[in-house]
Structures are given as C-alpha cells and as structure tokens.
Amino acid sequence: MYRTFFPRDIFSELDRLQRQLMSFDGSPSIRGLGNGSFPALNVGGTPSSVEIYAFAPGIDPASLDVSLDRGVLSISGERRSSLPGREEKITVHIDERFAGRFRRVVSLPEDIDADTMSAAYNDGVLHVSVKRRASAQPRRIAIQ
C-alpha cells in the first residue's frame, strides 16, 4: 500500500535487519511495524513530555490534520504529486516520492495532558509535543 519511504543502502539495511531480529520478541504491535509508511515517525519522551516527529516534506501546513482522540494521535493529509500531467511532453525517469492521501496513528501514553498539545512544521518535519500531567511526573519526596 505504501512505498518504502527511506530505503537504505545495503550494508545498513543488513545491519538493521540483524538488529530487528535480535529485538523481535514475537508480538508485533496491532497497528503494524510501520516500516515503509508515509510519513516516517520518530517518537521520544522526556520525564515531562512526549515528542513525535513526522517526516512529511513538501506539504502545505494548512492541509495537515493533527488530532488527538482518546489517547490516539492521528496525523493525516495529502501530498500532491510533483509530476506533471500526461499531456505534457516529458519523460519520467524515476518516480519514488510518495504522493496521495496519508494517515498515521500513534497511541500515546496514558499520562499525557491533551490540552497542552502543540504542533510545528519546519523544514518538512512536523513536530508534535504533548506535556505529561504534573501529577504523573516523578517527584522527590523530602524525608522529615
């Protein structure tokens, strides 16, 4: 359904496969492994926030839809093809870039505060940041 977004060179691909085999514990996520989907996602966390990076270059930020529903973040939108129509006298030699509608979902941890979600789009990367609830943050308890 999706084409591979970032194929790697063969040596790093073998390395990645080896690492994937080492870490595979037999139960993939219900939403799939997500390899080769558009946009590619990186997810990270700090003690006070959850950070999501979507690698979605060349999109009008107004057409990006970011929503959070019951702890599930969904990013959807459309990327138009840069290839000209058929009637023009051109030859397409390589056609690898993703075009069309896309949608990706990530389930976020339970301790996030949905009201603090912020999103920014820079250099083709959508960065969504959600704060964790203050009560869920690690606290140091003073001993009396």
């Binding site: 194929p7 790697r8 000209p84 030859t91 390589i94 870039r97």
Partner: peptide, 18 residues
C-alpha cells in the same frame, strides 16, 4: 560506505533539461 539515508527522488526530463 558510511550508513546514510537514501532520499527518495523524482526525476523528470523535458526538452530543455532535467
């Protein structure tokens, strides 16, 4: 040989160039 990401590309040619 350093491991790098390979960016996907589109290449189109018309009569005046690529």
């Amino acid at each position: 040989r350093e491991a790098t990401l390979m960016p996907p590309v589109d290449v189109v040619e018309d009569s005046a160039g690529i």
